[in-house]
Amino acid sequence: MLAALRSSAAVVRTSLLQHCRVSVVATTYRGAPEGRIGFASDASSNQPHATYLDKTEVTDRVLALVKKMEKVDPAKVEPTSHFQNDLGLDSLDTVEIVMAFEEEFHIEIPDSEADKIFSCQDAIQYIASQPRAK
C-alpha cells in the first residue's frame, strides 16, 4: 500500500518536473538572451565613430605628414615644432598642411580652428580631441 502510493507519487512528480522544465527552458531561451543581444547592438550602432584616437598614434601620423612636406627638413620635425618659426613654412604652407591633416584623419577643420593651428603640438591636440578622427 505504502509502496504503491510512493511509486505513483514518484510518477506524478517526475512528469510534473519534466513538464515544468520544458516550459521553463523554452521561455528563458526565447526571451532574455535575444532581448539582451538586441539591446547591445542598438547601443553600439548609436555611436559607431565616437572613439578618440590614441595620442601617440596621432603624434606619429601628424609628424609623418609634416615630414612629407616638400619644404620641410625631416630631421628637424619634433612634436613641439612650430611651423613658421622652426620649420620655415609660411601661412600658405600652413593652410596646405592643415588640408593634409583633414584628408589623413577624415575630418573637416573649420576656418576658426584652422587659424589656431600653428605647430605640430596644436595639430596633435586638436585631432586627438576630435571623436570623428579616423
Partner: peptide, 17 residues
C-alpha cells in the same frame, strides 16, 4: 585680409579634391 586669402586658397584645395 590674410584670413580671406587663406580662405580662398582653402576653397581652391577643397574644389581640387
Amino acid at each position: 585680409s590674410p584670413a580671406q586669402a587663406r580662405a580662398l586658397l582653402k576653397a581652391f584645395m577643397r574644389e581640387a579634391r
